[in-house]
Design a protein around this nucleic acid. Sequence first.
DNA 1: CCAAGGATCGACCCCACGGTTGATCCCTGC
DNA 2: GCAGGGATCAACCGTGGGGTCGATCCTTGG
Lengths: 225, 225
Amino acid sequence: MSIRVMLVDDQVLLRTGFRMVLAAQPDMEVVAEAGDGVEALEVLRSTAVDVVLMDVRMPKLDGVEATRRICSQPDAPKVLILTTFDLDEYAFSGLKAGASGFMLKDVPPAELLGAIRSVHSGDAVVAPSTTRRLLDRFSPMLPSSGREPERKELGRLTDREREVMMLVAQGLSNGEIAARLVLSEATVKTHVGRILTKLGLRDRVQVVVLAYETGLVRAGGGAAG
Amino acid sequence: MSIRVMLVDDQVLLRTGFRMVLAAQPDMEVVAEAGDGVEALEVLRSTAVDVVLMDVRMPKLDGVEATRRICSQPDAPKVLILTTFDLDEYAFSGLKAGASGFMLKDVPPAELLGAIRSVHSGDAVVAPSTTRRLLDRFSPMLPSSGREPERKELGRLTDREREVMMLVAQGLSNGEIAARLVLSEATVKTHVGRILTKLGLRDRVQVVVLAYETGLVRAGGGAAG
DNA sequence: CCAAGGATCGACCCCACGGTTGATCCCTGC
DNA sequence: GCAGGGATCAACCGTGGGGTCGATCCTTGG
């Protein structure tokens, strides 16, 4: 009996890659795919799935919230959260939402396959790099498993900050962003600084990398204009 | 006998990226560029071009209409349509307009280069995902023309420079790159400076954007963490 | 042999950037 | 009313990054 896997990611290319990897496994099969959280929930209503590979950053309904809704249902499949960046909020909120595992997208395929088998058999899998921080923060409050109403952790950036980030990610300087948004450069600098702090990045260069890696901006997606 | 290529796209960064990729090919050279369809037609009146890489979405005159006008002229160059979206309308109308090929921007560089050579030699090239649907309705039409070689040397990166560029594109600082490559920071700065000059970019931020937009770096490639 | 180009490094200058602090204004919620 | 958060802006300052010039070493090709 092969493991019935569902892929949820807004990046078609990434889904294709995973599908090919999984297709090469004798004990796995990809039975469903979805491009966002809403679509994922719909598909799950009519398809039997054992393990869901869930991306965090998605349009409409992000992976954390989608995970929460999936896991709140009876007979729910196991959810394995996948993301590109090792950001605490993702891991914590994802696991809090009911996910059985949390891994970075850049893990070796073999490791990912092992993770899928682990969660399918009931085990929990967490990326090694986040395990330590997980224990540090969660061990004192381990018995609690209830969810909280707060749901602003994902990219705790404000709208304005995200707007600035988009422009930073397109290669614009602070001055250009100021002109584009009709702001003073000082304001832009404030926003950029806060973005860096909140995301734990060093400089705007890493913002660009992050933006592309998370799909916030996407190659060929009309960056300039 | 290098292939004389013209780039038509409203995104300067993307043009630069393609230029860089093409410049690395011994049998290709970028002899002209344009930011919209009108400009493209103007330039073509005074420049001999073998293959036109044409974006679909552009201001003033879109790629399909520009293609139509180009191909309606005698001795017209081959047109290879590039777009981000895999929509039938683009492919069909583009090919109907006389284009010799149709590809998505996110194809691997090697594939794009192959497509250019194919188109230049008179073949028709279509993105694999649309080929099937296409064969059902259309039969490629393709006139012919030949041209001559020349050398012009536009921003060609050396191996070392390309190596440095890859690291820049992953968000590393000059110091980190120096450590990684076992170099002095001064050397890295020299390389970075030359990269910027050759590619016509302003700073390393734009290098990252360019790298992702051209597929030099792919999202999910484990660039950062 | 010599010329040319690439790779390596140093010194210098300038400035955009990022960090810090502090301020004003507005809106929302208690 | 007040507190809080977001958005806006200013001044300061240290540093990394980019531009420029120059230098040495090596390989390649004529």
